[in-house]
Design a protein around this nucleic acid. Structure first.
Lengths: 154, 154
DNA sequence: CATATTTTGTTTCTTTGTCAACAAAATTAA
DNA sequence: TTAATTTTGTTGACAAAGAAACAAAATATG
């Protein structure tokens, strides 16, 4: 296996495992809400005033997916939609009080996960961590360019 | 944003972007096959003799998902199922000639992706890459322990 | 300004996966 | 060995996301 393949596999399984752990906890602590609902609430909470297209781009899903999910969250009174006077096409969202509560519960869970994995960061060489972040950033930048290229090139 | 949060976000978006790029290419080069079909063919090609449960564990999906997907691949004559004399309960799979062809096409694509991203590995300090792999491995090991713990603990 | 083009959001249909219930086989316990 | 338990694979109902077609609004172009 090449270094690249090893890197990819490590990355992939790491996230798979995180998701497995997170999901198990979510089912107990936020049982009334589907993972995708919580995920969307989190994104809206962190990006107030984002429209459907922006949320879709940020979450790497289609606008259709966001449209459906926000509709559901509105029905469940976890978010509100609003529009501006200048632009009657775009739709923006904000959390309701109930949504804010879910948001905060999820944030608390996130901090709990950070604590759970703190030992990994504590026992690693700070230089190694910094190097890892730097490498991930470089890879991300490269893929941004590639995505840009495919958008134009085809 | 803490280092951990930064790390997680980088990881997540990196894989999102990879998937975006890969999917676009798959739709042109392996248009007759759905992404999940190709993915399963790849796993079976790399793990000959794996049963449903093993495939599910390896791909981080449920046995139900594997059962349905393998059924479809058998119908499309891309894989074959077989059983052993010793164990009449477990079901194993192997690629047909047609499946092998898809497998090889996908492997070729993978090598192409490696080439596409080679520049990232070439321009990074080898020590940084090694450190990154090491850190990812340490994190993976930690999560394996955590998963073990939750399986016992609840 | 008027028209063509693009952007934005929604909807329908399809794909993919989970969960839970189940039957058959294998394993463990009595 | 027989009975209880666990493992394995399958199925049906349902959840979530993608793709494509569409209408309304905004923007660009002549």
């Amino acid at each position: 296996m090449t270094t690249q393949q090893q890197f990819y596999k490590s990355l992939k399984t790491l996230l798979d495992k995180m998701q497995l752990l997170d999901q198990a906890e979510m089912q107990t602590k936020l049982a009334d809400f589907k993972p995708a609902e919580v995920h969307t609430i989190q994104y809206i909470g962190q990006h107030i005033g984002a429209n459907v297209t922006a949320i879709a781009a940020g979450m790497y899903v289609t606008r259709g997916a966001v449209s459906k999910m926000t509709k559901r969250l509105i029905r469940r009174e976890l978010i509100e939609k609003y529009q501006s006077a200048e632009n009657k096409k775009e739709v923006y969202f904000r959390l309701t009080a109930a949504g804010q509560k879910v948001y905060e519960q999820h944030e608390a869970m996130d901090r709990q996960h950070d604590k759970r994995d703190q030992v990994v960061f504590d026992s690693a060489d700070p230089k190694q961590i910094a190097g890892t972040l730097q490498f991930l950033q470089a890879y991300n930048d490269h893929l941004d360019h590639e995505l840009q290229r495919t958008k134009q090139g085809d």
